[in-house]
Write a protein that binds this DNA or RNA. Sequence first.
DNA 1: GAACACTTTCCTGTTT
DNA 2: TAAACAGGAAAGTGTT
Length: 307
Amino acid sequence: MWTQQHVLDWISYNVERNKWDARTIDLTQCEMDGQRLCQLSREEMMTMFGGLGDKLYDHLCKLKDRQATPSLNSCDSSDYELKFHLSDECPSEWDLIYDYIKNEDNLQFGDFDEMCDEKTTYPGYYSDPISPASSESCGSESYSSQAGYSAGSDLDMEVKISLGRDNLPNYTNSNGAPNKRRRGRPRKMNADSKDILESKKNKHSARGTHLWEFIRDILLHPDLNEGLLKWEDRSEGVFKFLRSEAVAQLWGQKKKNSSMTYEKLSRAMRYYYKREILERVDGRRLVYKFGKNSSGWRLGDKGSFGC
DNA sequence: GAACACTTTCCTGTTT
DNA sequence: TAAACAGGAAAGTGTT
């Protein structure tokens, strides 16, 4: 289920990790998805990536082996296991998986189950929250043990969040009468409900995930962009929201915030003007432009790959 | 624990 | 009139 970008990022990680000279790699060889990656033999990888291919293959084997069931320990026989876990159990957790894989020291793959458990409070942002099929997107009809998961996802998140909100303190004045709601962001949950989630946070919390990057990534990945946003002028970085509320919900899913709206998202976008991450596009509704402090959206930009 | 960055939430007023 | 824009104010959250 890895996209080309996922594979690129993984290769990039290995380039950095092995202090490999990225200039020796032919980028066109990197253009493959996860399925193709998993089909490559050691020899093929070495042909494609030279000495790094050996390391890439070892690392991939490591990932596969740690994922495999005890009865499937060999690299070759665990091919199915890798595909299975990534495609059926955690289709929407790519950012978590990424962080996890990149932080190789954390690669205790028993934790993969825990990672997947987080789905109950963290529906993925790669699924379409609007699509009727999205609630089933994680399911696999041939996998019986996924029933517990499919019963969770969005529904569980709603329950937990509403519990937290029901327990919010009521603001009252000295007479005990309810005050007008306080300005600013209210507390999301009280201590108790926070404790419930505490154990699931921190370790896999999203790092460096900013709104403008989220928007950029949707624009750059047509497979994720189901009519949500479109480029108005790619070379200038001008883009338009086509389904503003859907994008906001997707952002909300990523931030585990089911109450995200376009109004709030757009406020965050407006803060980017000052930092010149975005530029104003006057007179055009739902149209924004990437500014000089944004990156990774320009044609020819290879993002973090650096080669 | 403080400082900070980056949102998130609410609000009022304006523009399209 | 509704939707979107603009920006102030204040608070939440994660990182350093």
